[in-house]
Design a protein around this nucleic acid. Structure first.
Lengths: 338, 338
DNA sequence: CATCTGGATTGAAACGTTTTATAATTCCTC
DNA sequence: GAGGAATTATAAAACGTTTCAATCCAGATG
């Protein structure tokens, strides 16, 4: 097993010291043009690549960014990842991806362990009940961290979010404007910040319109299709039956769509449904889903950009960036039939 | 900036040499129970984590797996990633994710650069025109590589695939059995191995049934929704019009569904459509899409398992594993109307 | 010509591990 | 209790960089 080329071989070939080679690579000192060229030639001709491990060990920091994510399989996240990856690549950082599985124990494990790779920074979409706040606050020094998409319990560092409350508000307003008065909501897990924000938007719209809120019409789901399905089924059997359902994400909206179909209720004529996320498929459900668009790619990209700034030393006060959402009207809502 | 705990501090606290500490950590030599406990206690009480960088440097290998992927944003891949991640985690490997963007230049760049992190192994879904074969064959030694999902040009190492030909064949058979004789196909980019395999399955079914193949009915797409859309539009304007379309992935099938809707053709009554992939949303299109299921999670998991075997030294001949596909019948196909 | 100056170059230490060769200890056996 | 054989423990070298202090050198200055 032939070991790769080292800086020493370059130094020998270019007839300089290894310090000089290092200096030309990192542009960390002036070196005479003549030598510089000799070194560069040697590097090119031998196909040398500095060992990131040695470099990382010495500098106590690598060029990796580690990103914690609840689950790649959740169709909202890939766009976020892509946003991160694109700007990371541009800044020459590399992405290590960890799935916490929404389990804060697995998250902790990853957080602890990846530390010993000395990443340049952290990007974390906190899991349910994440202890990232205590994890990172313990070590006041250490690489910068930005929290994405969900505000973790107790976290007061940088965070970039999406306008959950406002999005939910506008979705609900839309329903109200169409004449609905019996509005139900299928929320996300209510220990998730963004889930409660969406619920709050819903409630605010209702109370501003003086429409009473029926506690039975608030069903807690888990942001998964199946939970939307069961919640909708429950809702659709109630008397009086709600005329519209706001599902706090598209997956659950899909479940609701299914449930309506099973119960024999036609959407949107007999039941209006609106979602949240605007996943790719939302255009193609039957009927096409009216939903609140979340800028996933932007979310990832701005978080990564913010992180990159921190890494090079930005010392501003912690930021809280919230990206706008936008209602996308399609065909899953209509005026109530009655 | 307080540096983290090192092995030296553990050694001091436990009053042993650093070599001993290393041995208890790695179980690489017998150490007396008494000392062992002292060391373990010290580790626990100081919260020590060995530096992966130092370890990797010394051993010339880390516990990272790097995975190349054309694009996270393609909804087929997350399941594959998840499969990989789950078994990687189980084997204590960590995943570095790289998006080649389907650009073999970006892929090469990543391949070259990640090398200097000394990953334990590589998992690659080759980009279009990938030169992974030449890249890796140059260095006969080095960490093991397994190729996923697509057979890269010239690659003759381990590879795990999906039964593309058979899947396409069974989809086409289904169409034939329903009575269709004017069958069109929207293929993937034909320099992709899996795209031609699917086309071959289609052709074989037709020729076995003695149904002639109209060259105009073979349209090349790019595995993206938009290309399926334009191809379908073209197809639906032809005379005679095909009565069924086999789209070689679900994204393109979706595009075709859209095109049909735009042209005013009802699916399945006036045009049958079948896809390939069985993405999550396939159940929920209008009408629900009949499609060929690909075991994405399995694909990732078995590839990772194979890689893990190689890493610990399995020296068997290169394997070629092909995972079965399966037709999922839903409502986007019906007998032809004429 | 000697001295000084300041930039270019270098040697060597350090980063935190693993691992090998050697030294120290323990345990038998006589 | 001595001698030798196992067994355990250790010191030191290596992994491939970066970086600091020290050296070197060319040219300017007196």
């Amino acid at each position: 097993m032939s070991r790769p080329i080292t800086i020493r071989q370059i130094a020998k070939k270019a007839n300089v010291s290894i310090g000089t080679v290092s200096h030309v690579i990192n542009e960390t000192a002036n070196v005479r043009e003549k030598l510089r060229i000799r070194v560069l030639d040697a590097i090119r001709s031998l196909g040398y690549q500095p060992s990131q491990l040695a470099r990382g060990l010495r500098r106590n920091q690598t060029s990796m960014l580690v990103m914690m994510i609840p689950d790649v399989t959740n169709p909202f996240f890939p766009a976020v990842i892509r946003g991160v990856e694109d700007v990371a690549f541009q800044y020459k950082y590399r992405l290590v991806l960890c799935n916490s599985d929404n389990d804060h124990r697995k998250e902790s494990l990853y957080l602890n362990e990846m530390q010993s790779y000395r990443p340049a920074g952290w990007l974390v979409i906190p899991s349910v009940d994440s202890d990232m706040a205590t994890h990172f606050s313990a070590k006041t020094s250490g690489p910068p961290v930005v929290c994405l998409d969900r505000q973790a319990q107790g976290w007061n560092g940088d965070v970039v979010l999406v306008a959950n409350e406002a999005g939910a508000y506008s979705a609900t307003r839309h329903l109200l404007r169409m004449g609905h008065r019996q509005l139900a909501v299928i929320t996300g897990p209510l220990h998730l910040e963004n889930a409660v924000e969406r619920l709050n938007g819903f409630k605010r719209a209702l109370s501003e319109a003086n429409v009473p809120i029926d506690a039975n019409y608030i069903q807690e789901g888990r942001f998964e299709r199946s939970s939307g399905h069961v919640a909708a089924k429950r809702l659709l059997c109630m008397l009086p039956r709600p005329t519209a359902i706001f599902a706090c994400n598209d997956l659950m909206a899909l479940g609701a769509l299914l449930a309506a179909r099973e119960v024999g209720l036609h959407c949107p004529d007999e039941i209006s449904i609106v979602g949240f996320d605007n996943l790719d498929f939302a255009e193609f459900t039957a009927p096409p889903l009216t939903t609140v668009h979340q800028p996933g790619y932007q979310l990832g990209a701005t978080a990564a950009r913010l992180l990159a700034d921190r890494i090079v030393g930005s010392r501003e006060a912690p930021q809280r960036i919230v990206l706008p959402t936008e209602l996308r009207m399609r065909n899953s809502v209509a005026p109530p039939s009655g």
